[in-house]
Structures are given as structure tokens and as C-alpha cells.
Design a binder for these strands. Structure first.
Lengths: 226, 226
DNA sequence: CCAAAGTAATAGTATTACTATCAATAATGA
DNA sequence: TCATTATTGATAGTAATACTATTACTTTGG
């Protein structure tokens, strides 16, 4: 698996960058270290100036790759969801039983202890942490409709649709497959956040995982055929 | 109801402000117009300078009420949840049947078309819009644990707990009442956002409301006693 | 080995997010 | 009613942010 994945290049909508960060050493350093710095400082305190200092490069060089930190965040979230989508398709491929397939799919989406698959420069563990606490900022903006039109959120939406299709395969009569899928994906992240910060409003802890809760939630809503 | 509510003062943790905005005309103008401006510009582009210009007051005067716009957002979200909590308790009070009570509770939390109850200076309709697209920014920060310790999110957590208690009353054997409650509250807002911006990953639209979906989601997970 | 592309260095601007000081005015209470 | 105090406004100033522009240096590919 690790072998396989390290040969894959994950493609992100090229409208989010000015210059493909995968195309140069500096670009890769920008991605690698932005993940480290955003995790460390939080997205709000993260700046291109600080990133430049951190990697010993000039601020202006970073602007040649990304117009602003918001687009960099879109890039990182897209990359994450593309990666999860890849794992989802790969992992569930060939599972005949729809319910098994859906459960396996949720498992991929809900993974808490992400493994670093050794993509040269991306630390998936830190990226996963960023997704939990920063990813919703990528769409909670005044520009969301314009950016959505430009396809910035395509990968995320495609992933949710895949889950909703799995739901429908289990129960074609279920009325809200898309809403259930989007809720499941959202909830998995939210419960991980609550587990870390607001323990009193979640049942997730060291014994109970967000995956258990969400699997139960989704499956109990469906009436499998037969 | 309107009569009743206009006599109530909603209390927000006084650590979030330096000077109670309810205690002066300027304070009320700050709250009233911050809601209008945040709705108009989005929280990210909103500044105290712009608010000052908008209300014909000096920037420095606003700083005397709130240290920064983040604390103002905490104030606004706390106010909103306190108001919803009040409506929740008021509306569900006296309903004997646990399932009816829970459904009614979800109805309050999931209300899409908020009514302006005529609190003199707060536009609940705009505030509700702000909650949908900005409220999660109040806790998705690096300071969340410190602020949580100081009680900044108490009202929100208390509301979620009330819902989780209603869930338990319907089905005492249900394993994840808090997680289900936090998911329901979160999902209701998220589905409203999706309905507005990412239609392809929700089933909510003019015919199907987030309330319908979430009620179905919650109720199907519970096995009522008897 | 030359041209083109990529990168670094420097400088500069407008805005943001404040803090500090002082003056003007309004409210209060002795 | 006069003095005190609280409240607000005006002005100024600082450090940081979020960029843009220009120029020069350094690779690398043909």
C-alpha cells in the first residue's frame, strides 16, 4: 500500500495555485512546512511571512505559488480529501455486500490515527489534525459561492457523494442519503474535535471512537434489503 | 410570547466583555450594528474600525466594550444559544411524552425562519444567519481550551446537554446521547449551510427541511420505551 | 554558452489591530 | 449647585499583516 501510494500524484484543481507546488523543491517545502506551521500556530496566526522565515525563503517567493493563505488552505483540504477518496475507493473496491462496503467506507473517513504513508513531503498525521480544526474555514467565507463555481470544493463533494451512493446501495428507499453522508463526514470530524476540547458534550473518549458512534448512527437509520 | 421575551435579559458570561453592552446606548448600538455588519461583510472582513464608522462612533470606544472581534463573536453566539435555550425550555415545558418533547426541542433548535421577537436592538433573523456561517469560528481557535476553562462556551454546552437529556428520556438505553445531541445541533446548522451553498450534498431544499432530516435521524436511532 | 525561468532581496503601501493620552461632555451624589 | 466621576470622542502612534513592484542573481535546458 505504502509502495503503491508513493507513486501516486494527488491532483488538486489548478485554479487554487499560481504555480504547482509539486513542480519544484520550493513548492514542496512550502506545502510540507505550511502543514507544520499551521498545526503549530493555528490557521489564524499563520502568515506567509512566518512560513518564509521558517523555510529560509522569501515571503514574495511563496506568493508566486499561492495568492494568499486561504487558497493554500483550500489546496491542503483538497489534497486531504483526494487522499481519503483514493483510500476509500481502493479499500472498498470489490466488497460485494453493501453494508460491509459502507462500514468500511466510514472506517476510512473516520480514521483517527492516520498513518503517514510516506508521500515525500506531506505529514498526513498533522494534516489530519488541521482538517479537524481548520477545514471548515475553507468554505465558511463570503466567497464560497464564487469559489464553489470554480470547483474549489469538488473533491470534498465527490467524496460525500460516494458515501451517499454507498448508503443508497444499502437502503434504496432511504430518503436523505446526501444529508446523511454529509452529516456523517462532518460529525466524524466534529466528534474528534469535541473529544479533544469539549468532552462533556460527546460520548467519544478512549474507549468509544467517533467511528463507532457514526457507524451506529448511519446503520441504524437504514433498512438493508433482505 | 413576544411580550414575555421583551422583558427578559439574556445573560452572557461577563468575562467576554469589559463593559456590559446592555448597560448603555452605545453598547446596544455596538451589538445591533455588529450583527448587521458581520452579516454584510462576513466575520473575516469585519473590523471595529468599520463598525465605528458605521455607527458614527470612535474605534477606541468600541474597544472599551470588547477586547477584540473574537470576543464580540463569542458574545453574539452565547446570546443566540441562550435565547434558543430559553425558547427550548419554555416550549417543551409541560410536555409529558418524552418523544413529543424531544421533537419539539429539535424544532426549536432547527428553526429556519427565525422570528424577530423584538428585543429592542437584536435582529434575530440576521443573528441566525451569522450563527450558520460564523459560529464555529468562535471555538475553532488555538485558545479554545483556555477559553473553555473560563466558561465561554457554557451556554452552548448546556443546550446540547438539555437535548441529550431529552434523548435519554426517550431511550435510556441509547449509548451515545451526548454525541447524538451535539451532532443534531451541528447538523441542523450544517444542512442549512449546504442548502444555501452546496446543494449537491444535501437533500434539504424548499420541500425538505433540515428539521425533517434531523428529526428522522434522531428518532430512528432511538427505541422508545413501551 | 546563452536565454529563459525560477528565486531572492529590497522596498514600499494600505490596512489591521490594537494602545495611550487628553479633552469634552454627561450623569451623579454630597 | 458644585465637584467628582464615568463615558465618549479625537488624535496619534506602533507593530504586524497582506500584499505589489522592481531588480538582480542563479539555475537549467536547448
Amino acid at each position: 500500500m505504502k509502495q503503491l501510494l508513493s507513486n501516486i500524484k494527488i491532483n488538486v484543481n489548478d485554479q487554487v495555485f499560481n504555480k504547482d507546488p509539486e513542480s519544484s523543491e520550493l513548492g514542496k517545502k512550502i506545502i510540507e512546512n505550511s502543514i507544520i506551521l499551521i498545526d503549530e500556530l493555528g490557521f489564524d496566526s499563520f502568515t506567509f511571512k512566518k512560513l518564509g522565515d521558517h523555510i529560509g525563503s522569501n515571503e514574495s517567493s511563496i506568493y508566486r505559488y499561492f495568492d494568499n493563505k486561504h487558497k493554500l488552505l483550500i489546496y491542503l483540504t483538497s489534497w486531504y480529501w483526494a487522499w481519503i477518496e483514493y483510500l476509500l475507493v481502493f479499500t472498498t473496491n470489490g466488497i460485494a455486500n453493501p453494508l460491509e462496503k459502507l462500514k468500511k467506507g466510514l472506517e476510512v473517513v473516520a480514521q483517527e490515527n492516520v498513518l503517514d504513508f510516506g508521500f515525500s513531503h506531506i505529514n498526513e498525521v498533522l494534516l489530519h489534525k488541521i482538517i479537524i480544526s481548520e477545514s471548515s474555514k475553507s468554505y465558511l467565507t463570503k466567497e464560497v459561492d464564487a469559489e464553489n463555481k470554480d470547483g474549489y470544493f469538488m473533491i470534498y463533494k465527490r467524496l460525500v457523494k460516494r458515501i451517499s451512493e454507498m448508503i443508497l446501495e444499502v437502503d434504496p428507499s432511504y430518503e436523505f442519503p446526501q444529508s446523511l453522508a454529509s452529516t456523517a463526514v462532518e460529525s466524524v470530524l466534529h466528534q474528534q474535535f469535541l473529544k479533544q476540547h469539549f468532552l462533556s458534550i460527546t460520548n467519544c473518549n478512549d474507549q468509544v471512537s467517533p467511528l463507532q458512534f457514526v457507524t451506529d448512527l448511519v446503520v441504524n437509520n437504514l433498512n438493508p434489503i433482505k
